[in-house]
């Protein structure tokens, strides 16, 4: 079993409602979104051509990439548009404690990151 590691990232109000922000943790760049009632975190790289998802417009529980408008689910990491695209991105479990967003990263060996628990996207 891989052990989860929770990392305190930022105060909630550093991310305005319905917007995303980038955060570099270890060798990963995360895009963390404030959906009003919760925070969701994914890799900050669009599966199309690596666009910065943190800069996309939030549409419900998905984000629309600013470069070519691929639509990616923030809950599952799956690409919702174009349809039938199998690519997806990693998602990370999050929680809020004392006004701070905490994200779960997983360590295989020291310093090496792997996918989060909720992640359906296992091929990257």
């Amino acid at each position: 079993m891989i052990e989860g590691r929770w990392v305190r990232v930022t105060e909630c109000d550093n991310i305005p409602p319905r917007e995303g922000r980038a955060a570099r943790i270890g060798d990963r760049e995360l895009a963390i979104f404030n959906l009003g009632d919760r925070f969701l975190a994914v890799d900050n790289r669009c599966p199309h051509r690596g666009g910065p998802l943190c800069d996309g417009i939030v549409a419900g529980t998905a984000v629309v990439c600013p470069l070519h408008a691929w639509k990616v689910s923030l809950e599952t990491g799956a690409v919702e548009r174009p349809a039938n695209t199998s690519a997806c991105i990693r998602t990370y479990a999050t929680r809020v404690e004392a006004g701070v967003v905490i994200v779960e990263l997983q360590l295989r060996a020291v310093g090496e990151l792997t996918t989060g628990a909720l992640n359906r996207c296992t091929d990257t």
């Binding site: 990392v7 305005p16 955060a23």
Partner: peptide
């Protein structure tokens, strides 16, 4: 308009 409008988040904690 927002304090992180132009800057990326500076994580409070980093991986050890």
């Amino acid at each position: 308009v927002h304090r992180t409008q132009f800057i990326p988040l500076q994580p409070i904690e980093q991986l050890a």
